[in-house]
Design a protein around this nucleic acid. Structure first.
Length: 431
RNA sequence: GUGACUGUAGCUCAGUUGGUUAGAGCACCGGUUUGUGGCACCGGGGGUCGGCGGUUCAAGUCCGCUCAGUCACCCCA
């Protein structure tokens, strides 16, 4: 009987796939830790209300993309993003009282019940940072720099940073009024989706890609022109921070984030070379989320990297680390006849004890097939145990790289001798 | 939720106006080498042609339905 299919949009990562993910997440992790961020791990399930309040009731993610889990009195939800949980954990641990300034990072799976397509799955990994407890504009610059440097560390080229400011709540209302007025006047010329967006979320009209909508976007009022003096000064200070760090950036009036919690700085990292959706990272400041959650008036800023879109981009650029690979072992212990199975089994274990990656045959393969297996597994050494070797207390070794054979006594020093040989260059003849 | 496209071996695909036992490359197993990998040559196993129904003397091929996948839109890291 066949087992059920895996759910739509959920992937199996086979051993050949895992190193690619490790490359992206590992690169990010090293950059974040170097900048003083420490890892936090929060539950994959949270109370549904956490996301409804943090992301905004009317967002698509909350309205139709949540995986919910009814459980007695409460309704839990698989997290669709990372920020809400980090803020909840920060408050739950009273960090705002004991050590209000925290630089945290996370990496892990998120879930959204979307229609899967290239670079978008229902379970997907995100890695990101959250710097909580400070409103410093320099922190926005630092967070953006960490994002940019993470992609540099991964080896992804053609990444561009686009920055904008959406001000505080007051600025946003002023701007919303101005934008609504402008768009109402041009509504007839807009696409059907934009007519929908006009009532749902006017700001979204700004990043519509339909050609016919471009003229009325170009003439539209700009967020930056409607910022109050302090908001404007904040933004300038952030840009100055980026310049000080030598981080290239472009102001983009069309950057509008999807969640309600954003304030002031918002940004995206785009990678040309990627198709439909080119964003590999997005983030911004969220100065009211901590106080909305019952905490003090403390600012915060952060970003999240989409691991899958990043992998898609790396693959398109032909990055070697984006290819599939097999890690492999150091040594393979081959048994010539059935009688050496158990000795080979034991020897492999002894080699492991000396820190070598070692394995032996479990499929009753013939010697030739065991060699083939050793080669495929990336083993440099094949240790051969046959009736003669076992009788004499010796082993034969074949160095697959160097292509030479030797024989050694099977004593306590054997594992160390093999380990030493692994360190030597493949060509052992010249010395 | 909307639209387009694609389902043939483990993988990538071919299959001519419907016409005998459905093919190739890679991978796998074996042999050439009765205790030595990679390369080469030879051989072998492996397919309900996504599923159901219809047209026909005859369907992988044509028609309908269905399922699955992919890509794009909406939305969004």
């Amino acid at each position: 009987m066949p087992l059920p299919d895996r759910p739509k949009g959920f992937d199996d990562l086979l051993p050949d796939d895992v190193p690619r993910y490790e490359h992206v997440i590992g690169s990010f992790r090293r950059v974040a830790e170097a900048a003083g961020f420490r890892e936090i791990r929060t539950p994959l399930l949270e109370d549904l209300g956490l996301f409804q309040r943090s992301l905004g009731e009317v967002t698509d993610v909350v309205q139709k993309e949540m995986f919910t889990v009814p459980r007695q009195e409460e309704t839990l939800a698989l997290r669709p993003e990372g920020t809400a949980s980090v803020v909840r954990a920060y408050l739950a641990a009273s960090l705002h009282k004991t050590a209000p300034f925290q630089k945290l990072y996370y990496a892990g799976p998120m879930f959204r019940a979307e229609q899967p397509q290239s670079g978008r799955r229902r379970q997907f990994d995100q890695c990101g940072v959250e710097a909580l407890g400070s409103s410093s504009p320099l922190l926005d610059a630092e967070v953006m720099a960490v994002a940019v440097r993470s992609f540099e560390a991964m080896g992804l080229r053609n990444v561009e940073l686009r920055v904008n400011s959406i001000g505080d709540a007051g600025d946003r209302e002023v701007f919303r009024a101005a934008l609504t007025e402008h768009m109402r006047a041009h509504l007839g010329a807009r696409c059907d989706d934009c007519k929908e967006r006009f009532t749902r979320n006017v700001f979204r009209m700004l990043d519509c890609k339909v050609p016919g909508c471009q003229p009325s976007n170009a003439s539209a009022p700009r967020f930056l022109d409607h910022l109050g003096a302090t908001s404007r000064a904040r933004f300038d200070a952030t840009l100055a921070g980026l310049t000080a760090l030598g981080v290239e950036h472009a102001v983009d009036h069309g950057i509008v984030r999807g969640f309600d919690y954003y304030t002031h700085t918002v940004f995206e990292l785009l990678c040309r070379d990627v198709g439909a959706r080119s964003a590999v990272c997005g983030g911004g400041r969220y100065d009211t989320l901590i106080s909305d959650g019952g905490g003090p008036e403390l600012g915060a800023t952060g970003f999240a990297i989409g691991v899958i879109p990043t992998l898609v981009a790396l693959e398109k650029q032909g990055h070697p680390k984006a290819q599939r690979g097999e890690p492999g072992i150091d040594a393979f212990v081959a048994a010539v006849t059935e009688g050496e199975r158990l000795p080979a089994f034991r020897l492999a274990d002894r080699l492991r004890g000396a820190g070598l990656g070692a394995d032996c045959d479990f499929e009753d393969k013939k010697l030739k097939a065991q060699f083939k297996q050793a080669d495929r597994r990336g083993a440099r050494l094949v240790v051969i145990l046959g009736p003669e070797e076992v009788a004499n207390g010796r082993v034969k070794i074949r160095d697959l790289r160097a292509g030479e054979d030797l024989e050694l006594p099977d004593d306590a020093a054997l594992p160390a001798a093999l380990a030493a040989r692994l360190c030597a260059p493949p060509r052992a003849d010249g010395s």
